[in-house]
Amino acid sequence: MGHEVDMREHNEEQVIYLSSPVIETLALFSSLIQVKNDFLTEEREQLEEAYQNNFAVVQLKKLPDYSVYNLFNLLIPIPHFSSVELFAESLKRMAPGKFLYYFWGEDVPVEIVTKLWESPKTIWELDSNYYWQTDEVKAIYEQWLPVLQGFKNELAELLVNISKTAVFHAMWQEREPLMEASIRELQQLSMPSLSLAQYVMGKTFKRTSLYKMYYFIPSYCMTPARIRIFNESVCMVIYGCANALSNERESSEELAIRLKALADPNRLLILRLLSVKKEYGAKLAEYIGLTTATISHHLDILKKAGLVKEEKIGTIKYFAVDKEQITEMMQSLQHLIGK
C-alpha cells in the first residue's frame, strides 16, 4: 500500500463565518466573572445561583480584571467551535504548561512558562511584565499556579454543565437566528479581510500579520465586548451582536460628530450658559468676550451637531440647549463603552 503527500504550501487566505455554542458558553461563563452588560441579567442570575461557589469561578475571580477573556485564547490550540464536549475534552488533556502559554496569549516565552509551572515561586525572580506588573499580582499567580491543573479540569466540567442547562438551550435557540443574521450582514460587505476585522473591532490594529485564516464569530452573550485573538497565522474576531454592527457604526459616527463639536472650551461655555436660559448671539458674545461673528460660528457647529435648538422671537434668534439630545449623547457614549 502506498501513500501520496502534497507538500506544496497553501497560501490562500481562508475566511470563516460561524456561530458557535463553544463561544457562547465561554461568553456566558465570563459573565459570571466580569459583569459587563444588562443583556444577560436573568440568565446570569440563574447561573450565579447554581455556580457562584464553583472552584473554577472562585479561582478565576482571584486573578486580575479581564483575565476571564484570556480563556478565549485557548481557541487557537483548541479550534472546536461546534462541540462544547470536544472542547472540554481537549482542555482536560492539555498540559498545564501549554494551557498557560496560550492563556497568556503566546506572549510569555515557553521557557518562562515552563519554569513558572514547575516552580511558581520563581515568579519573584522574573522581571515585571504585562501579566505580573506588581507584587500583588505576583502573589496572586504564585497561589494560582499550584492549583492550575485542578482549575483547568473544573473549568472543562463547568463549561459542559453550563451548555447542558435549560438556560443555555433556551437562549441559544432564541438567539441563534440573531447571530446568523449578523453573519449575513458581514458577508454582504465588500471589504478585504483585515479591513473587515478592523471594521468589526472599531479600530486600526497596531499588530498585524499575513494571516492565513480569519474567523468572524458573532456572540449574543459577548455584547458589548469585542475580542481579537491572533497569532502569526490566525486572526479571530469575536464580537457582541445584540445590536447590529451597522447601527453601532452609524451611532458611533454621529457620536463622533457631537463629541468633536464639544471639543472647544468656548462651545462648552456656550452650552453651560444656554443650559440656564435661552439667549441670543450678541448677549452670548458679551458674556464670553468674543465677537458676535465668532459666537455665530460656534452656534452653527453646535446646531449641526444637534446640541442646541433655535427659536425666533420677533426678529431675534434665541438659542437653548437641547437637553434631550445631550441626554441621548451621554447614553450613546455609555452604551458604546459598555458602562
Rank of each mutant, 00 (worst) to 15 (best):
V234D: 10
L269G: 03
N266F: 15
A256C: 07
L262R: 03
R272E: 09
K283S: 15
K283G: 02
A256N: 12
A282T: 08
V234Y: 01
S233G: 11
A256W: 04
K277T: 06
E248S: 11
G289L: 05
R258C: 11
G240R: 08
S296M: 14
R267Q: 09
E248C: 13
A261Y: 00
A242M: 14
R249A: 13
Y287C: 11
S251D: 05
S275Q: 02
I257A: 06
Y287S: 07
L299I: 01
N247H: 04
K260W: 10
E253Q: 13
K278Y: 07
R272D: 07
L273V: 15
L262S: 01
Y239E: 01
A261Q: 00
Y280R: 13
R258Q: 14
T294F: 12
A261I: 02
T292H: 11
L274G: 00
P265K: 14
S296L: 12
I238W: 10
T292M: 09
C241R: 02
A244V: 11
V276F: 03
I270L: 15
R267G: 10
E250Y: 15
K283A: 07
S251P: 00
L268A: 04
A256H: 14
V276S: 03
G281L: 02
L273R: 08
L299H: 02
K283N: 15
N266V: 14
C241W: 03
H298E: 02
V237R: 02
I238E: 06
Y239F: 09
P265C: 15
K260R: 12
I301A: 08
E232T: 10
D300G: 05
R272T: 08
L274T: 00
N266I: 15
L245E: 02
T292S: 10
L262C: 00
A263E: 08
I301S: 09
N247A: 08
A261F: 01
G240T: 12
L290M: 13
I238N: 11
T291P: 03
R267F: 09
G289C: 08
G289F: 05
S252L: 03
I257P: 05
G240C: 05
L259K: 05
L274F: 05
Y280F: 12
N243L: 09
L245R: 09
G289R: 06
L284G: 04
E286F: 07
V237S: 02
R272M: 09
S251E: 09
R249K: 09
T291G: 14
C235N: 09
A293C: 13
I288K: 07
K277F: 01
L299E: 02
S246A: 12
C241Y: 06
P265Q: 10
Y287R: 07
Y239H: 04
E286Q: 10
R267M: 15
T292Q: 15
I301P: 03
C235E: 05
S275E: 03
